[in-house]
Structure formats: structure tokens, C-alpha cells
Amino acid sequence: MPDLPERKVGIIACSGEELAVGTVTRLAALKVLHEVRPGKTVTICLPLFLAGGEGDRAFARFHPTITVDGCELRCAARGTEMYSGKPTASVVVSELAAKNSLEHIDGRRRLNEAGQKAVELTTERLTNLVDQILATKPSAESLISITPVPVKGAR
């Protein structure tokens, strides 16, 4: 039986520089990648993805992805959809914080206590989504959507 590549989940954070919730997305994505689910996740660099990084775009086309955005503009989710495909799941930190009555997230450079709690909350949400996605069999659609590579010399 052939060895199939291990299924991993791509996490795409907006890393928005203007707002503290943007910093939350970045830190939560890194926490999942390095501490909570190493080996099962990869992060996709959003600027590279948007600037035309073919490797990152191809990964996002054929592997499950979770976008994590700081605010309702949802730049990571929209960018992923524009250049690759609809993300498997999306998280918006401002909505998650509101649902959990977490207020006054501040400190885009150095997060305050509420910001750090938001990182924990977002990490937990991302981890649950990663586990749910990896527990699900890949859909037939994701398998047949692979574009065939033209064979040199073939008619």
C-alpha cells in the first residue's frame, strides 16, 4: 500500500497589526502550532499566500484550513477564499470574546490580561476545530478537486 502524506491542518492568522485582536490571532496560531498540536498543524504565512506563494496556495487548496481573524473584516478568511478555496472553518476573535463576555482586549504590541485570556480562548477553539477536522474523513470533493498535472509529451 502506498504511503500517503500525513493529513495536517493549515492555520491562517490575519496577524492584523492595527488591533490587539490581530495580535491575539497570531499568538493563538503559534501556540497551537508549536505547543498544543505540533506535527498536526502548519501555519500558512498570509502575506506570502496573498503575494502569490504557490506552495502555500496549493497546500490550502488540498488540505483543510482554519482561518483566524481578529475582527469582522475577516481578511484571512476572505483572502483564503479569494486565492485558494473556502476555509474548512473560521474563527473571529472579537465574536468569540463577545460570546464569552471578555471585554477590553488591548495592547497590540504587548497584550493586556484580557488579551492573554483571549489567546487562551482562541487557542482552545482552534484546537477543538483541528481535532474535529482530523477526526473526519477527507471528503470525496477534496480528492477529486486535484488538478491533473499535464504529462510531458502526452497528447
Binding site: 490575519c14 492595527e18 473584516l73 481578511c75 484571512a76 476572505r78 483572502g79
Partner: peptide
């Protein structure tokens, strides 16, 4: 924030690219 707050504005790259 520290050196030139009055002369600069920080713009998030992702916002720019999705057409904000």
C-alpha cells in the same frame, strides 16, 4: 508608537490586500 507617532500611520497588510 514610540519614535514618530505624529508622522506615521500603521496599516495592516491583510486589510490592504482584501481591498479595505
Amino acid at each position: 508608537e514610540n519614535l514618530r507617532p505624529a508622522d506615521t500611520t500603521l496599516v495592516a497588510l491583510s486589510k490592504l490586500v482584501v481591498g479595505d
